[in-house]
Design a binder for these strands. Structure first.
Lengths: 184, 184
DNA sequence: CCACGGTGTTCGTCAAGGCGAACGCTCGTA
DNA sequence: TACGAGCGTTCGCCTTGACGAACACCGTGG
């Protein structure tokens, strides 16, 4: 679901990563096995590189491919307990606090879950490609895909695809967990 | 730092996502505004698409660009408390258990931290572009960049750049936390 | 039976990407 | 000052990606 002219993003990304790697245009082109003229045009947003060309640059720069084609991100942030925006709080026995999301289109969200025993919290499938990671902080909970949930205690960890129905049900009072929802 | 011939990956990714979207080759080509012959060649791993072509396909399929160029990932996994590989355990008062890493080259790692009061755990700067997220599960800790750490309690959250020196120092017994280290 | 709308493939043409050489440029240095 | 080594840019040539038409291949139903 990305938008924005990719060639501009690529141009800036290439320049940024090249500066970071302390490489000259000529040197990087040599390492990537491409003509420096090509690289020059790319950094000036002139042209439309082939995948192999960009790939060669990503390995030469030793950065993931997506770094070159997708825009960058922010820096620091602190959220005190109880401060963050609480979402999914339609019920008193389940509160999810959003700690971090990646604007404009989230690639991974981090939530703090606090829940009390009660009805299971069922989640409809999210976008395909979503994976959820849960680490139990305290209490006890039944977590995972609805058809095969797992009982977890403090320190336990589970990962499961988020694009299928899944559940989070506290089994003990004062249950809390850290949930990472990432868009792969 | 990705490897493996990208054109094969792209071929499979395109086919996979197109099937998932229930689109015919002709229909997808029409939506993306490219020739169906081009798409046909791409799915047969013949040729080397330009970025704009792939971009058009990613928006037409409504999937992130990286999904088309990077290989897929696994599905489910559970790690019981104390089961995972413990790393950074050179001292008894600080243990980090690796819960999840993204093979072959991690984009984000998830750790369970258990620590006792003692000497601060100092970390050298990681790769540039790394951001660490910490959610305190229990106890109390001093966390963040070495030059400006923050004291946190249960439920507190902090994010900071991992490419500068940073610290994790337990201030109370039985301190635990969930740490997400992501490569942006 | 063949015409039809649909699939995905292959073929010839044309524009565009990638290349290397040549260029102008700024530094150090003899 | 002149020279050389490095930088990044610009300029033809040639290869190659992208296009559209034509193709073969099913099911359908007239």
């Amino acid at each position: 679901m990305p938008h924005g002219a990719p060639l501009d993003v690529i141009a800036h990304s290439l320049r940024r990563e090249r500066d970071r790697a302390r490489l000259s245009l000529s040197e990087l082109a040599k390492r990537a096995g491409i003509a420096k003229s090509t690289l020059s045009q790319l950094e000036s947003a002139t042209g439309n590189p082939s995948v192999e060309t960009l790939w060669a640059l990503s390995v030469a720069l030793d950065v993931p491919f997506s770094r070159l084609v997708e825009p960058p991100k922010p820096r620091v942030q602190v959220i005190r307990a109880g401060e963050g925006p609480a979402v999914y709080s339609e019920r008193a026995d389940y509160v999810a606090t959003l700690l971090a999301s990646c604007p404009p289109n989230a690639r991974r969200d981090i939530y703090l879950i606090t829940a009390e025993p009660g009805n299971a919290r069922e989640s409809e499938p999210h976008m395909p490609g979503v994976v959820e990671h849960v680490v139990i902080s305290s209490g006890r909970a039944l977590v995972g895909p609805t058809d095969e949930p797992v009982e977890l205690g403090p320190g336990d960890y589970i990962a499961y695809p988020g694009d299928t129905a899944h559940v989070f049900q506290a089994l003990a009072p004062n249950t809390s967990a850290c949930l990472v929802s990432e868009h792969v």
